[in-house]
Design a protein around this nucleic acid. Structure first.
Length: 813
RNA sequence: GCGGACAUGGCGGAAUUGGUAGACGCGCUAGAUUCAGGUUCUAGUGGGAGCAAUCCCGUGGAGGUUCGAGUCCUCUUGUCCGCACCA
């Protein structure tokens, strides 16, 4: 009977469904593994990236299940987000309807791949039950002072009609639609992720070796911790008067307190409060005012392209040590978002300050010895720095911070590049932010018993404005505190909020999904995720937010876990002709068509075989054929099996080919532990199985065939589960899936060992010697076999690597 | 500029952690089956010389350590990715 993937796969998918084969046990006693592939956005159809992601995850899940772990391998849907609204605008369908019908379709597609998901824990993040608990967490964060509302300059995407978090701006453009991001002043809700910056940074150490080093590096970089001195520049008397006494100084931050005596000017951002005040009160001449406004309207990217620009503000500050008067400028390179939007400028020892000072002919004062040219940013000894002259600059850093602290003028401090996470979005299809604006009570959270604050169903989505804002009645409500007329918040939560805690939701027993968002005991048992699999594109956004939420929810008492994802595998992209598969490029392969033609097992085998999972995978139709051929061959060899259990084999009685076949089979078995625990190189495990099958084919011993198939089907079950199950049932009554397979060392014992003979570092010939041969015997045999290369040579050194080779170092006699 | 990764046949990729480079698969060549193509099977397949035994060269490049280097060290070239005026 030939291989019929369609029938076999349908049969097994039905059996698994009926057996509820992949539900984890509720018991917390058993050893566990939590295997998680990043959940999909229900865009409509599966693409090859999904297939790769879930094929990898499923291999882990099935492997550990066979090792007798209690395995949690869930799936769900990251269901809120803009594409649902865009589809609504395009097709006139409600986002909810669009989303859930996509989920139904994609669930079928996932089923057809034979993935071993738990079915009882599936949910979509737009389910009211999920929103309810998320809103509760948000309120708890507000009550803890971790969430606040503030009006600031934000990144605005005009095409998406919404605010974006810093992490969602890529090269000045929207991460989703690539539209240029504008700056806009508006109120929004923020989560104080900076409060957790140190922990987020420090705990990266625990992930060393378990997460890709690149991802760890990217997160470190993104948090961007730097230490230095924060101090206050006092405005000169005259300048205070000029500013109508509204300001008496401002704070600056520097990582180079050692260069304090080299300050020759100070620069403010165009958005700095003093700059703004001067603009608003006509304290600047018209031309300068216009130039500054022009800077304000530029994005950071544009400013960088423009080159250094600035204008004197006609005010001055006092140097905190020398008492000198220092001119204050406004400069386009000073970022409002970092270090308070103001800097001290030391042109002699900072490249930017130097460039600016040169352009505007500002004084340059060297205070550190070293280098022949300015600016000099290296180490050295201080000069012209008062009592700190002649001190090493590293020592001076601490010394100057100490003096400034003693004199009450400044303090040693830490700054982060990381900004607080802006979580409000001006869109409909998201979780409403559960607050009410009351004229008397201010910002008030909705009452717990009224959660979830649900989205209105009768809504018109046109793409213009915020549909919640425009809804005729939805936002009008009573204040939860005082009962008077109030207005509901119409912003919804960033969808990254949902994906920040879903790993805890899966872990929570569905029986308790109504009363709790996260069950503490369940979470503590299942988390952290033992293997997380997903794309590198989430290296910062999702993975940082999820780590942050984990720590916050821990501190709110919902669990005791510090890090959500113990091990991370970032899969490479699926490419076609060197480019990422995408509908717009028309270079896609449809998973459904592939499964239809070859079956899910071939699709899974190919995808795991074609490249290591971390690397990009180039699609290759003929290589898919190759994967198909292997499965057919495996299926065909069922006729070679002569027994239904693992046979006892008398190694001595076997011929050479059979012995070799056993070696290959057991090598594959050895390999599998390494692959799942360390290397993730499924491609090499599959190659080892192919080698084993090739070697089995070269011999005809029924017992060796039986043993080989028994073991190989076990090894291949995580990869080609349907075919493996079918053959295993037919041949072994599925007993080989429960069996604990042990490597039999006697298989590797050979009656003669092949030694490579190297002479002068080059491979010359081979010798066969008995395993019991002494070193002298081996050397003698090697010298005899290599005699023709030894003529006229003197042996300088003799090396014998046991079981491997002999190397004779020679020189001309 | 800072940070990270990578470089091996025509292609995807192996190499037990310093020990026979190119496993496995694709492609290609020849033959067999079939003969319309495909399928399937057998043999070959890093480059060069040679009828052959065999020899020389070979893991981006140049050095070094070593009996022995794809693997370790130094320098260098190139590619990819992330961040980027972060004071």
């Amino acid at each position: 009977m030939s291989y019929t993937p369609g029938e076999i796969e349908a049969k097994w998918q039905k059996i698994w469904e009926e057996e509820q084969a992949f539900e984890p046990s509720d018991s917390h006693e058993q050893k566990k593994k939590y295997i998680l592939s990043m959940f999909p956005f229900p865009s409509g159809r599966l693409h090859m990236g999904h297939v790769r992601n879930y094929a990898i995850g499923d291999a882990f899940a099935r492997y550990y299940r066979k090792q007798d772990f209690n395995v949690l391998h869930p799936i769900g849907w990251d269901a809120f987000g803009m594409p649902a609204e865009n589809a609504a605008i395009k097709h006139g369908k409600h986002p909810r309807e669009w989303t859930y019908s996509n989920i139904d379709y994609m669930r079928k597609e996932l089923n057809s791949l034979g993935l071993s998901f738990s079915k009882t824990r599936e949910f979509a993040t737009c389910d009211p039950l999920y929103t309810k608990h998320e809103q509760k967490f948000i309120i708890e964060m507000f009550e803890k002072g971790l969430l606040y509302r503030e009006s600031t300059t934000v990144n605005w995407c005009e095409s998406c009609h919404t605010v974006l978090a810093n992490e969602q701006v890529e090269e000045g453009c929207c991460w989703r639609c690539d539209n240029e991001v504008q700056l806009k002043e508006m109120p929004g809700y923020y989560l104080d992720i900076i409060r957790y910056a140190d922990e987020l940074l420090d705990d990266l150490e625990q992930l060393e070796g378990k997460w890709p080093s690149q991802v760890i590096a990217m997160q470190r970089n993104w948090i961007g911790k730097s230490q230095g001195l924060e101090f206050r520049f006092e405005l000169s008397e005259e300048s205070r008067k000029k500013l109508n006494g509204k300001f008496d100084g401002y704070e600056v931050f520097t990582t180079r307190p050692d260069t304090l005596f080299g300050i020759t000017y100070s620069a403010l951002a165009a958005e700095h409060p003093i700059t703004k005040y001067m603009l608003e009160h006509g304290l600047l001449d018209t031309r300068t005012a216009e130039k500054i406004k022009a800077i304000s309207n530029m994005t950071e990217v544009e400013r960088a392209q423009q080159g250094k620009e600035g204008y004197p503000l006609g005010i001055s500050v006092i140097h905190p040590q020398t008492g000198e008067e220092i001119p204050v400028w406004v400069a386009n390179f000073v970022l409002a978002s970092y270090g308070g939007g103001a800097v001290m400028a030391v042109p002699a020892h900072d490249e930017r300050d130097f460039e600016f000072a040169t352009k505007y002919a500002l004084p340059i004062k060297r205070v550190i010895e070293g280098g022949s040219e300015l600016p000099y940013t290296g180490p050295g000894t201080l000069r012209d720095s008062g009592r700190f002259s002649c001190v090493d600059n590293e020592e001076a850093k601490t010394a100057i911070i100490n003096i400034m602290e003693e004199e009450g003028k400044g303090r040693g401090t830490t700054n982060y590049k990381l900004r607080n996470w802006g979580i409000s979005r001006q869109r409909y299809w998201g979780a409403p932010i559960p607050f009410v604006h009351c004229p008397s009570c201010g910002l008030v959270p909705e009452k717990r018993e009224n959660l979830p604050v649900a989205l209105p169903e009768d809504v018109e989505i046109t793409g213009e404005g915020n549909p919640l804002e425009n809804h005729p009645t939805w936002k009008y409500c009573a204040c939860p505190k005082c009962g008077q007329d109030a207005v509901r918040e119409t912003d919804t939560l960033d969808t990254f909020v949902q994906s920040s805690w879903y790993q805890f939701r899966y872990a929570t027993n569905p029986k308790r999904w109504n009363e709790v968002g996260i069950d503490k005991a369940d979470a503590n048992y299942w988390l952290g995720v033992d293997q997380y699999i997903g794309g590198i594109e989430h290296a910062i956004l999702h993975l940082l937010y999820a780590r942050f939420f984990t720590k916050v929810l821990r501190d709110l008492g919902h669990h005791d876990i510090d890090e959500p994802f113990n091990r991370l595998l970032t899969q490479g992209m699926v490419l076609m002709d060197g480019a990422k598969m995408s509908k717009s490029k028309g270079n896609t392969v449809d998973p459904d068509a592939l499964v239809e033609k070859y079956g899910a097992d071939t699709a899974r085998l190919f995808i795991l075989f074609a490249a290591p999972p971390q690397k990009e995978l180039e699609w290759n139709d003929s290589a898919v054929e190759g994967a198909f051929r292997f499965i057919k061959k495996l299926y065909d060899r069922k006729s070679k099996v002569t027994g239904s259990t693992l046979p006892d084999i008398d190694q001595e009685s076997l011929d050479k080919a059979s012995k070799l076949a056993r070696v290959k089979v057991y090598e594959a078995l050895q390999k599998s532990t390494d692959v799942y625990e360390k290397t993730f190189a499924f491609n090499t495990l599959i190659a080892a199985c192919m080698e084993a099958l090739n070697a089995l084919d070269k011999q005809n011993n029924g017992a060796v065939w039986t043993e080989g198939m028994f073991i190989m089907l076990n090894l291949l079950e995580p990869i080609i589960p349907h075919t493996a199950a079918e053959l295993s049932e037919m041949l072994f009554n599925r007993k080989n899936f429960n069996a604990v397979l042990e490597v039999k060392e006697e298989v590797f014992v050979q009656e003669s060992i092949l030694y490579v003979v190297m002479i002068g570092g080059k491979k010359r010939t081979e010798i066969e010697v008995s395993p019991s041969a002494a070193k002298d015997e081996i050397l003698a045999a090697a010298k005899e076999a290599g005699s023709k290369w030894l003529q006229g040579m003197q042996i300088v050194k003799e090396i014998v690597v046991p079981g491997k080779l002999v190397n004779l170092a020679v020189k001309p006699a």
